[in-house]
Amino acid sequence: MLEIANITKTFHPGTPNEVRALRDVSLRLEAGSFLIIIGTNGSGKSTLLNAVAGTFLVDEGQIGLAGHSITRWSEHQRAKLIGRVFQNPFSGTAPNMSIAENLALAARRGQPRGLGWGLTRKLRQELQARIRTLNMGLESRIDNPIGTLSGGQRQALTLLMASWLKPELLLLDEHTAALDPKSADQVIRLTHEIIQRDRLTTLMVTHSMQQAVNLGNRIVMMHRGRVLHDLQGPERARVRPEDLLKRFDEVRRREQLDPAVADMLQKNYV
């Protein structure tokens, strides 16, 4: 279970570039639930994911995961509990190392690494079997450097790596945004399978309304560092991509109003 309580993050405080990326965000995610976060650019959805992953420490608030308070944990400590797939297919794998070596690294996520042999024969067979389930024909190429693979193949492998040891929380940060539509479909199907099979608690950021509606059991819409809508239960079940788009339009209309109002206020009072 993930519990985010009143977290706040401001980047570059006190400078002209000050960005209040997260403003008093609270979320409670039951074990096994699959939450999709949508929002406009700069709404703070990726920042929220990074706050949970520990890319930075939050200014205020608490984050709890699986019974631990992880608010002050560093990124690599949190990796014991969290599996991650990044937006950029290059981020999740080491390009000059082989497929097998990459997976062997993931097979020890969050565990101490000593002088034991890295890629044992047993592990090789195990990962070959798991790679075969991807149906990408990669099982015969496990000694090739991962940098020679396509973005879709790399994302599929990263997904496999993130879920190799069942994580308490899976973080997916627009992990299909950089892929062509066909690869994106393939990766989404795989995402669905893995999450279903292992009943993973998942937090996924996406730009695709279609993905938001088809996957997961809860949708959160963020705007300007706040949670704007939280759709669950029957409301979530009824929602269609058009409804989500309509809510985005509402937000946009309000945005357009803002500068005009500001202008008027300035004229009247300054």
Binding site: A53, E75, H76, Q77, A79, K80, I82, R84, F86, F90, S91, G92, T93, A94, P95, N96, M97, E101, N102, A104, L105, A106, R108, R109, G110, Q111, R113, G114, L115, G116, W117, G118, L119, M161, A162
Partner: peptide
């Protein structure tokens, strides 16, 4: 070829990835 040595090579290759693996 050990767990530690493989992690060392990965650190040079992609620090973001190896951090995400703990």
């Amino acid at each position: 070829q050990t767990n530690l040595g493989t992690a060392m090579r990965a650190t040079g290759d992609n620090p973001q990835m190896i951090r995400a693996l703990g």
